[in-house]
Amino acid sequence: MQKTLKKYFPVFLLPTLLSFAISFLVPFVMGVYLSFTEFKTVSDGKWVGLDNYIRIFTSDKTFTDSLWLTVKFTVVSVITINLIAFSIALLLTKGLKGTNLFRTVFFMPNLIGGIVLGHIWSLIINGVLGYFGVDITYKPEYGFWGLVVLMNWQLIGYMMIIYIAGIQNIPDYLHEAAAIDGASPVQSLFHITIPMVMPSVTICTFLTLTNSFKVFDQNLALNGKSAETSLLALDIFKTFYDHTGLKLAQWHGTGQAKAVIFSILVAVIAFIQLRATRQKEVEH
């Protein structure tokens, strides 16, 4: 069968491969190349070696600033989202009536797009701050915490669903045996439930990690105007599109170099995740 199927290459493989090449493969290869050039448009790159990369870490401070901000944002989001999501999952696996209804409600914000979410929260946060006569641009901290609240609202339901699945997979007899041995509910939480849901913890940690690290739409809609609250993805976008004039070619080169470093950081996170999940699979 393999031989006959092989001849059908133009039907089965070619259409997907062609669109893949146009939208990802060629742009990716050109993107890597252009990060070593200065270019006004894709076809007129002039080789400058590592200049763009050096500039990112020396004269142009926005990259290191937004990288630091993104790291802070990611750490805070990962911790808050996972703690709250896990707690809610615990409440919803007690076998109470109406659990499904609550699950439906908590998951819902996840389906709303980042742009719409950003504007909803912009109205609410500015509404609250309005009582004190200020708005979200008044202090960078407001924008930062606003974005943390937004991410929590969006992702808690999603992580909760994964935690619920993990908790429901724990066999009942473990808790029953512990109860017979006189373990308190708190003891059985720390010695049975939490160790048993570690695979879910790994998945959720990395999902929140990559989602927070790559956040763009929410950032743009909520507090995108201020440079002080621009995370990495938004900073790269602004480097490309917010500049005009003589140095345009240099800005484009810088933006592309930032994008390469951003990609490497994301790839490193993904690689660690792959290793972590593989190890878990061996243990079980």
Binding site: V26, V42, F216, G255, F262, V266
Partner: peptide
């Protein structure tokens, strides 16, 4: 090789190909 290229594309953030992809489009 094709399979691993597809998998690889899942990791790369959109900003990496944003400018060049728009040009080709």
């Amino acid at each position: 090789i094709i399979y691993y290229l597809f998998v690889f594309s899942m990791i790369v953030p959109f900003q990496m190909v944003m400018y060049t992809m728009t040009y080709y489009a």
